[in-house]
């Protein structure tokens, strides 16, 4: 895509966010939108790994938790300012991501899925069992909110803007990354690792780098989540959260930056809408997931575009 089109679309996206942020005044809706923003960050990071580099991870909730617990521990046990813990959390997750990614990405296919899944479960056990620091199964209470000047960022409008500003930033960043030399190398890697290696791409290093990048994004999402909610517990970073992240990516559309936004929105909003079904909620949720994937295996983004294109071809045929 041309950089001009990307610039326009990002600009309109940012304007849309400002409009929604100012227009929505109900705290519940603001909060829901904020959570969607956090999930978008998670989905986008994972999409860079899954969609572009073609490497699956079923344990990304580990990094989401690493960010949340990292900053939670620094700010509650050591009374750091949240701003001081931000760089530490990001650097740590980057290093940990690389150190884990390098060996684990030697695996491929289902074995990689299993390896990352194991990683997620080990992280979850650490969050739950290391109770002197993490608060154990009962959770970690009293994480201070982020403060900018005299403005306290909470789950309302302030948090909304903080989270979505981050999302826009990463949209731009990921967009540029995808179009860059690294992006082309990534896609080569995703299409055919052998061919990529043959053309001089250091695949093991590149895979670990993109793994680390997605880990940083997940950790950042966790950081924001912890400070906005003020409370974290291990159940938010379990195996099911990892699966939910993968679902967001696949439902939205692999290798699509906008698909991450769509996937995160749908997966976050669906349970809220399905509340009316009460006892049938779980059935409805599972059914929708299946139906979407059966009929739109490329994800919603691709599906919506295809439908749009079909409609245009039809219209074109009708007018001629």
């Amino acid at each position: 895509m041309s950089s001009r089109a990307r610039l326009y679309s990002t600009g309109i996206f940012a304007l849309g966010i400002v409009a929604v942020g100012l227009g929505v005044s109900n705290p519940y809706e603001q909060q829901l939108l904020t959570i969607i923003g956090i999930h978008t960050l998670l989905a986008l990071g994972l999409n860079m790994l899954m969609g572009y580099a073609g490497q699956i991870s079923l344990g990304h909730a580990a990094f989401f938790g690493l960010g949340a617990y990292g900053t939670g521990i620094f700010t509650t046990h050591f009374q750091w300012s949240p701003w001081a813990s931000l760089p530490v959390v990001l650097v740590t997750s980057c290093l940990v991501g690389y150190a884990i990614g390098r060996p684990i990405l030697r695996l491929s296919g289902y074995y990689l899925a299993m390896g990352t899944l194991g990683l997620g479960i080990i992280a979850h056990v650490i969050f739950r069992e290391w109770d002197t620091f993490t608060g154990g199964a009962s959770g970690l209470v009293g994480i201070p909110p982020l403060v900018v000047g005299r403005l306290v960022l909470g789950l309302g409008r302030t948090g909304f803007f903080a989270v979505w500003a981050t999302v826009v930033l990463f949209f731009v960043l990921c967009g540029r990354l995808v179009d860059s030399r690294i992006g082309r190398a990534l896609r080569a890697l995703g299409d055919s690792p052998g061919a990529a290696a043959a053309s001089g791409i250091h695949t093991a290093h590149l895979k670990a780098v993109i793994f680390s990048f997605s880990a940083v994004m997940a950790a950042l999402a966790g950081y924001l989540y912890a400070h906005l909610l003020g409370f974290i517990s291990p159940s938010s970073f379990d195996f099911l959260m990892s699966i939910r992240m993968v679902t967001m990516v696949v439902i939205g559309g692999m290798a699509s930056i906008w698909g991450s936004l769509l996937g995160a929105s749908v997966i976050t909003l669906l349970p809220e809408w399905l509340h009316v079904f009460s006892d049938y909620e779980m059935m409805a949720y599972g059914l929708i997931l299946m139906v979407v994937m059966i009929f739109l295996p490329q994800g919603l983004t691709r599906g919506v575009l295809d439908a749009f294109q079909r409609a245009r071809t039809l219209r074109g045929a009708a007018s001629s």
Binding site: M1, S2, A5, R6, S9, I12, F13, G16, V20, G23, V24, E29, L32, L33, I36, S256, I257, W258, G259, L261, L262, S265, V266, L269, E272, W273, L300, T301, V304, L305, F308, Q309
Partner: peptide, 23 residues
């Protein structure tokens, strides 16, 4: 033209999702 339309479409779809519950 076709390629340019892509992000717009997605953005609109996302906006529709967002507006769905606002309304």
């Amino acid at each position: 033209m076709e390629r340019k339309a892509r992000p717009w479409m997605c953005w609109m779809a996302a906006a529709a999702v967002a507006l769905g519950f606002v309304a």
